[in-house]
Write a protein that binds this DNA or RNA. Structure first.
Length: 338
DNA sequence: AATATATGCAAAG
DNA sequence: TTTGCCTATATTT
């Protein structure tokens, strides 16, 4: 159940676990047998997220160190494009000597030997080290795939299984660029362009609530970030985009940058300000997909409005509203958001 | 055991 | 605007 922050986190995980390695690629379920065959034995050289799209770049196995620069656009790089959809998930397992071991549903749930925080941005291509390590199952216990595993990536000391994706395909660099051309700016990426977002929202009568869910307007925002960002901005989701002041739209972007980068760093969406949460206390489970860090926010205090229909607004006390719109539930406070 | 639900999207009507 | 699709998990029968 991923929004963009989860996908960026996954990209970092793949970099940490696999960058530079030759991978064994298979499709235990069989539905991706052809694509797996094409990638099997190639070398993962770059892992990149744009919105909810994950791109894993595979060079030919014999690529040399001196060829590494520019691999992201090399014509012979092939990309595994995956999109988790509503319920896709990557599950990780690893050997004791893995740099980190992640076991994940949607996002890494457990890591062994993890540093305090992952790097805040993916390593650049030039940081990728080509290793000669060959994947092996001789030295550690590789678990059997569980469930409908579309793709399995086996590296030197870790395995990653993908289930339930809405998209999973091998594409060329050109095709990757045409996918990216259809995506709006991504607040988590350094190249995310706020001006493009502000201009596009202001050009349309479509409601701001709908536009935030449109990946061509802004990439990576899903139902939770939409609801929460609009609450934090005090904006009624049903207002036409062109009627929202551009300064407010810009403020929404700036807030998304903070919220989504925090989500990518911590593995959970938390949008409540400390003063709007209940008494600090340990009851209640922390949000799924967190690293279980001390002080993590309990699940029932992480949001202002998402999934809180009928409950009192944390700020004004009036009941949170819900309405189905374009097939998705929209949550908001009719008093705080105007 | 069956059903409902989910942080999504594209194609069809 | 509705339908179909991908799958695991929680809830209900």
């Amino acid at each position: 159940m991923p929004e963009g922050h989860t996908v960026h986190r996954l990209a970092r995980t793949f970099d940490t676990l696999y960058a530079g390695q030759v991978l064994r690629v298979s499709s235990p379920q069989g539905r991706f047998a052809d694509g797996a065959g094409v990638l099997d034995g190639r070398r993962l050289v770059v892992s990149e997220a744009w919105g909810k799209q994950l791109f894993l770049g595979f060079a030919p196995a014999d690529v040399s160190d001196t060829q590494v620069t520019g691999l992201t656009r090399a014509p012979d790089t092939l990309w595994l494009r995956t999109h988790l959809g509503l319920y896709g998930a990557w599950t990780f397992a690893g050997a004791p000597d893995a740099p980190e071991v992640a076991h994940a549903i949607g996002a890494p749930r457990r890591r062994i030997g993890e540093r305090d925080s992952l790097p805040s941005s993916a390593p650049s291509v030039s940081d990728v080290r080509i290793t000669s390590v060959t994947p092996t199952s001789d030295t550690w216990d590789v678990p059997e795939p569980r469930g409908q595993v579309r793709v399995r990536l086996l590296g030197a000391h870790a395995v990653a299984d993908l289930t339930g994706p809405t998209a999973c395909e091998v594409i060329t660099t050109d095709e990757k660029q045409s996918v990216e051309a259809r995506l709006g700016p991504d607040p988590i990426r350094d190249d995310g362009d706020p001006a493009a977002f502000v201009a596009r929202v202001g050009r349309s009568r479509v409601t701001i609530g709908q536009q935030l869910m449109d990946q061509a307007v802004v990439a990576g925002v899903g139902n939770i970030y939409r609801a929460e960002a609009l609450f934090r901005a005090g904006v009624d989701p049903l207002r036409p985009g062109r009627e929202v002041p551009s300064a407010t739209v810009r403020a929404i972007w700036d807030d998304l940058v903070v919220l989504m980068r925090d989500g990518a760093d911590h593995g959970a969406i938390v949008t409540t300000r400390p003063e709007d949460r209940g008494p600090a206390g340990g009851r209640g489970r922390t949000r799924q997909n967190t690293d279980g860090a001390p002080g993590a926010v309990p699940a029932d205090q992480a949001f202002y409005v998402y999934h809180r229909d009928g409950l009192p607004c944390r700020v004004c006390g009036s009941p949170v509203l819900v309405k189905e719109l374009a097939g998705r539930n929209l949550f908001w406070c009719g008093t705080c958001q105007t």
